[in-house]
């Protein structure tokens, strides 16, 4: 049972108050896009053994979405940050690199 801190309301909530929303930072491909791009957007998902950027909604709380950087193996949470972000914040990337020297943001 994970705990994540919602950056929108500041509450450290447990998993049963949250709803998972899959991979973060997807770029939407709409009408006119190539089939391959659209397929990637709609279906292809990272499934890393390690650092993962993911979407969560504070469903039983403030109702807001946020993003989290989490290790899928150790469940360590490197940080949570607003959903209105197109890429992981530098601060969190640096934190991950400090702890996982072999990791890089691909």
């Amino acid at each position: 049972m994970l705990i994540l801190t919602c950056p929108n309301c500041g509450l450290t909530a447990e998993e049963s108050e949250l709803a998972p929303g899959g991979e973060a930072h997807l770029k939407r491909f709409g009408p006119g896009s190539e089939d391959a791009d659209f397929e990637g957007y709609l279906f292809q998902r990272a499934n890393p053994k390690g650092v993962h950027f993911e979407r969560w909604r504070h469903a039983y709380g403030c109702g807001k979405w946020f993003l989290a950087a989490r290790c899928t193996v150790t469940l360590e949470v490197f940080g949570t940050y607003p959903a209105q972000t197109t890429e992981p914040p530098t601060e969190i990337v640096n934190k991950i690199k400090a702890k996982r020297p072999d990791w890089s943001l691909s």
Partner: peptide
């Protein structure tokens, strides 16, 4: 409602 909020908060904020 969740679907609407998802698009509003995460895509068209």
């Amino acid at each position: 409602h969740a679907h609407m909020e998802d698009w509003l908060q995460c895509e068209w904020w």
